[in-house]
Amino acid sequence: MDAPRPAAATPVEPSGREDLDGRARLLAALRKPGSRGQVVAGLLLAAVGFAGVTQVQANRKDDTYVGARQGDLIQLINTLSLASDRAEAQITKLEKTRDALGNDTQARRTALLRARQQADTLGILAGTMPAEGPGVRVTVSDKNTGVGTNQLIDGLQELRDAGAEVIELNDSVRVVASTYLEDTTGGGVLADGTPLGPPYVIDAIGDPHTLATALDFTGGFISEIRGVGGTVTVQRLATVQITSLHKVQAPKYAEPGLTR
């Protein structure tokens, strides 16, 4: 194919000295670049080098299974498909776990929200949180110190009966489930250990109209106060702010029972 024909032979060196032997010619060509033949040879050699390296790399990539027998290959494929099945099963399982965790997080968030709402409700009920809302402010003036615990307890009872949610005495005592009133010798009252004197101010959060009417009926709170020589003014307010707090102590004797 490439047999060099003597007829087409032309020396590559411009000097063209035929007496040079092969080694000298090679060295001369290496030292002296530039003839057309060298450029062409360079291009083709570049192509050969490129193709050769490409083929070597392609071969290196793929020759892992070239010598393998059919049985080996089938086993290999089976192993791979098994592994892929296993990986898919694992993916499904993990996705399920992820979904479950997502649901769990959602449920926990909901539970937390509900617990927080309940804590708010209970805090208001127990008097551990400040509260505000529409309500009434009842001011009881008393010059003769005729007003005592009887009348005040009646008043609180009327207000609770009318749906008062939060009650406060004299801006300082939060009325809660355990609140007690006690008469003192000086004419005032002792509420949860705090001495109070007239004028007594009862703040209550609830429907203002209902609360006001609950106090004002024949034989009710207002007439009772008047009977002992006091005066009562009831203000209906759009916003009653109750800031005094009740200090909760952990129950000493009572323990939570089982809920069914």
Binding site: V12, R25, A51
Partner: peptide
Amino acid sequence: LPIAVVAALDAVFGALRAFLDGIFDDKVFV
């Protein structure tokens, strides 16, 4: 590609031999 590379290598070595013989011709080589 593999066969082509081997064939090209044959051509290259033939050309090198021709060059050392002093009868290299770039046309023949190409």
